[in-house]
Computed example of a mutant assay.
Amino acid sequence: MEKVIEISNLCKTYKNGRGIDNINLDIYKGDIFGFLGPNGAGKTTAMKIMTGLIKPDRGNVKILGYSILTEFEKAMYDVGCIIETAETYPYLTAFENLKQFSRYYEGINAGRIEEVLEIVGLLKYKDEKPTRFSLGMKQRLGIASVLLSKPKVVILDEPLNGMDVEGMINVRNIIKNLAENEGTTFFISSHLIHDIELTCNKVGILYNGKVINVDNTKNILNNYASLENYFVSEVERNDKF
């Protein structure tokens, strides 16, 4: 299997003592990896390092074989990401927002913009401005901007936040279809256990800045009634040490 993301001995400590400690993860082509943990566990810190927004104290991340520390442009060339919030230009329409974002890439035409709007269920709102959108619709517009360039790796921080049930199902299906049919690799963080269970084929639990276990969702559900039961069991076991 082709290794797409390799996280090695990743550490970052803030002045308040919080952060991440010695994270090691291997993610393979077509994986939908769920980074599961409570708020404040360090998920966003890890993802900011992965995308070059902050530097680690120690360790490295390689994406598609390239180090984000020494070969950043090559590492990020085929990566699409949303960290924390999907930002938009409020004075532009949904279509115009994506046209603006398309300037970062080569060969993105109006047809591709409409295609990704259709994928995320926003084509009929293409001439509306995001100021009229719900939080979930804004998230979907952000995901559309990520998909514009057909990235090989997609990194999403809490992508289902604020979505209604229909929007969550829509985005979940998008992720699964891209992983299965195009081999797109997803790295998704969330504190919403049920969403990770329904979306991801592999799960890593981050707790107090440390990865305490990684397993396939199928294996987990063969041994536990739900991902929530597994999560509680692993956290309780970890707290004893």
Rank of each mutant, 00 (worst) to 15 (best):
K124Q: 12
A41V: 12
L98W: 03
T51V: 14
V153N: 01
L141M: 10
D215T: 01
I169F: 13
L25G: 02
K124N: 12
G19R: 13
Y230K: 15
V235M: 11
V232H: 06
E128L: 14
L198S: 02
S67M: 11
P56A: 07
M137K: 04
K12Q: 05
Y230G: 08
G80R: 11
L25H: 03
Y77D: 15
P38G: 05
K99P: 04
K150M: 09
D127G: 07
G42C: 09
T184L: 02
N97D: 14
L141G: 10
E106R: 08
E128R: 15
S102M: 10
A225H: 06
G209W: 12
G42I: 10
K152C: 06
F33L: 04
K43F: 02
V146P: 14
P56Y: 02
T184W: 01
N201M: 12
G107K: 12
S189A: 06
L221E: 01
N208A: 09
S8P: 08
I20P: 00
F231S: 02
S149G: 05
M137S: 11
L206G: 03
N39L: 10
L122D: 00
D31Q: 12
L178M: 12
R132L: 07
V61M: 11
G204A: 10
A41L: 14
T184K: 07
G107F: 06
G142Q: 10
N161Q: 05
E118P: 11
K210G: 00
E228A: 03
G107T: 08
E197R: 00
S67H: 09
K43V: 03
G142S: 13
G204D: 03
Q139M: 10
E236A: 13
G65R: 14
N201T: 15
G34S: 00
Y14R: 13
N60K: 12
T44V: 05
G142T: 07
Y104Q: 07
L36H: 09
F186D: 02
M1S: 14
N39F: 05
E128H: 13
K124P: 00
R140M: 13
K129I: 05
R172V: 03
E182R: 11
Y66N: 14
N201I: 10
G65L: 08
F95N: 07
L98G: 03
K210Y: 01
T184F: 03
L92M: 15
I20F: 06
P38L: 13
N22M: 00
T131A: 03
S8C: 15
I188Y: 03
R140C: 02
I68W: 04
L69T: 09
I63Y: 08
I188E: 00
N161V: 01
A75H: 05
F187S: 10
E180L: 12
I23N: 00
Y91D: 15
I119W: 05
Y104L: 15
S189T: 05
T131Y: 06
L36E: 13
F35Y: 15
K43C: 01
D164P: 11
M76N: 04
N22S: 07
E6H: 09
C81A: 14
S67I: 04
E234Q: 15
L227S: 12
V232L: 15
G42V: 08
L221C: 06
P90T: 00
A41E: 12
T199C: 05
T93V: 07
K3Q: 15
N161R: 08
G162A: 11
E236V: 14
C11E: 01
F101R: 11
I169V: 15
R18D: 03
